[in-house]
Design a protein around this nucleic acid. Structure first.
Lengths: 126, 126
DNA sequence: AGCGTATATGAGAATGATTATCATTGTCAA
DNA sequence: TTGACAATGATAATCATTCTCATATACGCT
């Protein structure tokens, strides 16, 4: 067998910077020679998300986008004009989120922090 | 005419605590006697979002959910089990977001901070 | 009022991402 | 090899959202 499907999907997701859509995972996997089907892409992605190996968010149009979760938890800042994504991991805000969750009595807390704006490059080339 | 459609939609969205889906807006509006159509609900919601009067996010399944944007900027903590929503507005995190955006050179910054977890009630009744 | 034009509306069709179905194929222990 | 069972992929179904278009309404002008 060429390669296990889960492996193929992880390679594609992990090999991309930023987020990829399920359809992109599918076409990239096919381009790289895997005979994987779209249904399996969705199945594998879902199991990877459940397993915590891949992160799932939704873009401005509500489409699912996936991103390999590395060792470190982090968030993203996205430029609304060029789409460039900056990853960040700020201990201050992590600490804040944890403290806040505790204050309101939430457990098993996840948080999503998305910052969007216009990056320096786009703003100056305006 | 009974009432302008935009008014009806704003009433429904504003009259709900937390987020509502477009379908919910539609059925609530119909229940309250408006002959509004689903297409118009979507049209009006989109224009309200563009106008900044309504905020748009996506839930765990990628469905759009709308929320009236009041005078004060705030964020939400949602219980994954009962769906209850707690609004919060914490100056610390606002300050952090602003400072961070400046640090990476972003302008016209918006940020979304979503906290999800299991609330005290659900956790203890488990 | 009468007329013309532009805009808004709603019913239903079309779209497109995601999910379910199901026959087929691969896996593996006995 | 064989039988049980999970994994796969093609395709159909689902469902939120968007598009289309015929109609209705608002607005300006005479």
């Amino acid at each position: 067998m060429a390669r296990k499907n889960e492996e193929v999907v992880l390679l594609v997701v992990g090999g991309s910077t930023g987020f990829v859509s399920a359809q992109e995972v599918y076409s990239h996997a096919r381009e790289s020679g895997s005979p994987i089907g779209l249904a399996t892409v969705y199945r594998v992605l879902k199991s990877l998300v459940d397993a915590g190996k891949v992160e799932l968010t939704f873009d401005d149009q509500g489409q699912a986008r996936y991103c390999a979760r590395g060792e470190t938890h982090h968030h993203h800042a996205t430029c609304r004009q060029c789409g460039r994504t900056i990853e960040f991991d700020d201990p201050d805000v992590e600490r804040w989120a944890g403290a806040y969750a505790e204050r309101i009595g939430f457990v098993e807390v996840r948080h999503v922090i998305e910052i969007s704006g216009v990056c320096h490059t786009c703003a100056s080339s305006h």
